[in-house]
């Protein structure tokens, strides 16, 4: 992979120049949290943001969007023809791992038109990160990324090492080649190696997830799950903020008067009671605890069966967002019988 250097003072100028390609998005502070937003004022860009509340999936499958328009006489048309190109800056490795998982889920068996259409228009500029006490990407080996981005920025104090990850990334870079330094010296190399060693040791939260599929299987009928089930608010927050949760529902909205109707697709959560309810009234997961179990089975076991790796990427969003402290770290510890600090 080809790499360049970009002096930090050029960053904002460079990002702004990328508006020639499309909208430039990045993490911006909103109260205590960060949100991926379209950048108009580059001074607002939060380079230290760790986990924008909604992950990258919001670009690829928005929380709600129209799939079809239809008229009363039975004619219908695809509601999503084109998506404006967005260049998303500041995406961390764990999120890119989630993206790679979504790519497999949405591109392989029965490619999803809506995902593909959004995906094609979403260009990614990765940015290295320093973990906080909620990050556990190293435990899942998602703390580093070699593919899935167009440009990859590694923060080496006064400059960024910029990796070119795709042909589109090459276009982005060449757009302002004048700002980049092509010469990588052995000093740069050493600095990079040192940085990696240092950064990989910054993880405060380390989970041993090696035997999770078996543990999920063996713990299935244990009483401890009931306590977790009683605690869960069934609010669905975990599904909304998890970078690999992409369940959805569909609803038809009729048009009023001469307006066309629309078919809308929107995020759903398996934590909601209605999720597995079938016509006729039978609910396959009536009990809260069964829904919590499904969620964690799907994160920590099912994806391993399907894709050879867990769906969890260690981003820490569930730790940061569940109002009653149910999250991957907590569940892992409980299931493994480890003491959980309240």
């Amino acid at each position: 992979m080809k790499a360049y250097k970009l002096k930090k003072e050029y960053l904002k100028e460079y990002l702004k120049s990328l508006e020639d390609f499309g909208e430039v998005w990045g993490p911006i502070k909103k109260g205590e949290i960060d949100v991926y937003e379209k950048i108009t004022d580059y001074s607002l860009l939060n380079l230290n943001a760790l986990r924008p509340i909604l992950p990258l999936k919001k670009f690829l499958i928005p929380p709600k969007f129209n799939t079809f328009f239809y008229t009363k006489d039975g004619k219908y048309e695809n509601a999503l023809k084109e998506v404006k190109r967005k260049i998303v800056f500041g995406v961390h490795p764990c999120e890119i791992h989630a993206l790679l998982t979504l790519d497999r889920l949405y591109k392989e068996r029965y490619p999803d038109y809506y995902y593909l259409t959004h995906r094609k228009s979403t260009w990614i500029i990765a940015l290295s990160c320093v973990p906080d006490d909620k990050c556990f990407a190293r435990s899942l080996n998602t703390h580093f990324v070699e593919e899935g981005f167009d440009l990859g920025f590694t923060d080496l104090e006064d400059y960024y090492l910029v990796w070119v990850g795709s042909s589109e990334g090459d276009d982005l870079l060449r757009h302002r080649l004048d700002l980049f330094d092509e010469k990588i010296t052995s000093k740069d190399l050493n600095r990079y190696i040192e940085w990696r060693k240092w950064r990989d040791n910054q993880y405060q939260l380390n989970l041993d997830l090696t035997a999770m599929p078996d543990i999920m299987e063996l713990s299935y009928d244990l009483e401890i799950w009931n306590e977790i089930g009683e605690r869960c608010l069934s609010c669905g927050t975990c599904s909304m903020i998890c970078p690999t949760c992409t369940c959805f529902n569909i609803a038809d909205h009729l048009g009023i008067d001469d307006e066309p109707g629309r078919r809308e697709r929107f995020w759903d959560s398996c934590m909601l009671k209605i999720f597995a309810l079938v016509a006729g009234g039978h609910n396959f997961r009536e009990k809260r605890v069964d829904r919590v179990k499904l969620w964690y089975t799907h994160k920590l076991k099912a994806f391993i069966t399907e894709f050879g790796k867990p769906a969890c990427v260690g981003c820490g969003r569930c730790i940061a967002n569940c109002p009653v402290n149910i999250n991957v770290a907590e569940i892992t510890k409980i299931l493994k019988g480890e003491e959980v600090k309240k």
Binding site: I53, L54, P63, C235, G236, T237, M240, W267, L272, I274
Partner: peptide, 10 residues
């Protein structure tokens, strides 16, 4: 068929 939290996260 969901609570406010879903829309809140959106």
């Amino acid at each position: 068929s969901y609570p406010v939290c879903i829309e809140c996260k959106w």
